[in-house]
Design a protein around this nucleic acid. Structure first.
Ligand SMILES: [Mn+2]
Ligand SMILES: [Mn+2]
Ligand SMILES: [Mn+2]
Ligand SMILES: [Mn+2]
Lengths: 221, 221
DNA sequence: AAATGTATTTTGATTAGTCAAAATGCAAGT
DNA sequence: ACTTGCATTTTGACTAATCAAAATACATTT
């Protein structure tokens, strides 16, 4: 059985393979896991001999099919637990990530199945991140539209927050731009680099373009 | 912060201090934790220098106030989690102990408080074991009556199962002698060593005296 | 082509927890 | 008092995960 350290390395690798097209640099793992570079090298080599990932020296790592399956399982636990903590136990969505970081290693598949059923098989967590199903299939989110590139004057719904730092989550909470919220882009000005939005309440919000790119939106259900 | 290994040692010590009047022999910990004797000696010495317990050489260990407070916290987590798994997630009461054994180390006090509130501050877990409150106070259960010594022909309620081995829990499940069940002792025969009981359904059950001593009963609410 | 800077790897050490097997202490039984 | 038996401790070794600091490789700049 994989230790929780190994599970953390696998999940971190999975979460970075998109933006690094396949091969995740060691530095990304150093950053994600909060350890020194030498530690990552050592761990990665051990995990490579276990068949969980491939290590290209001086390049980075790639998940093997076995490693990816395990990583998806951990991610599923993480996101289902987050959903459960928010929906059932009414915890603040800004504090659940930290809790899930520990619980993802302690929840068995038996318990997970009960949670999944209890929640009605949700497909996204409180931040709008897709939840892999029990077979490890995860919705493709490559083509998602953000407030940076969405249609103008059309009713939209916030579906996902891409920046999950505590500060940004607090800002989203404050403005009400949370997943599920109704929003409309009134005007987008590339020159000044801002996006003017309006909420259901009539409240107006102005965002810089890079910030707008962190709010994923979709059709109104 | 105490590691989960340390938490397990503390909880095991707490669970044995009654029956060993204070000083818990090393062998009890060997048994409870499934490690070799030398390992217990090493761990216990380390924990003693940390002020979590006192080690009387060749005698055993005693919890310090700090150690007891931590142990009660772990026990509280264990029992609240068990209760939650049974009541909310509808898991089988015979499988929750194992799950709680892992979750007790991963659930934070923040999450625990939510679970406690969600469940309505229960005072006993699915096996009838008392749940310590948030201050570490636990109900005294020294004077509990079992089917071995209870009144005859009086309506009683099962309140606790003292033997929690999988086999015995399965037996209890099968006969319906679970906590909450209505039961009456029809006849107790010390000579033949058996107790004749009757359930609400009219079903009759005969138990040996040592087995009857494992079923705690109380007044009908 | 040489120099620089940064990412990565190597080396040596540390901590927590564990086992195997030998040594030791102690309570009982003879 | 001597022996036996068992619980406990000691000793030496091992694994997983980590850090500090030195060494190395490689891409970029000069
Ligand atoms: Mn984690
Ligand atoms: Mn999330
Ligand atoms: Mn445990
Ligand atoms: Mn219990």
């Amino acid at each position: 059985m994989a230790t929780s350290t190994v599970e953390n390395y696998l999940k971190a690798t999975l979460l970075h393979e998109q933006e690094c097209d396949g091969i995740v640099p060691m530095g990304a793992l150093v950053e994600a896991l909060g350890v020194v570079p030498g530690t990552v090298t050592t761990m990665v080599k051990a995990m490579a001999t276990q068949g969980l990932l491939e290590h290209e020296s001086r390049q980075g790592v790639r998940l093997t099919p076995i490693g990816r399956a395990l990583a998806l399982g951990v991610l599923r636990k993480h996101r289902l637990v987050e959903t459960f903590l928010v929906q059932t136990l009414k915890m603040d969505w800004s504090e659940v990530h930290e809790e899930a970081e520990a619980l993802e290693h302690a929840v068995s598949n038996r318990v997970l199945e009960r949670i999944d059923e209890f929640l009605g098989r949700p497909t996204a967590d409180p931040h709008g991140d897709p939840i892999p199903d029990a077979t490890g299939t995860i919705a493709d989110t490559a083509a998602q539209v953000t407030l940076q590139g969405s249609a103008i004057n059309k009713a939209l719904r916030v579906t996902r927050i891409l920046d999950q730092t505590p500060d940004f989550l607090a800002y989203v909470q404050e403005t009400g731009l949370k997943p599920g919220a109704w929003v409309k882009v009134v005007r987008r000005d590339e020159t000044s680099g801002v996006v003017h939005c309006e909420m259901k309440t009539g409240q107006k919000i102005t965002l810089g373009l890079p910030v707008a790119a962190k709010i994923v939106v979709g059709a109104l259900v």
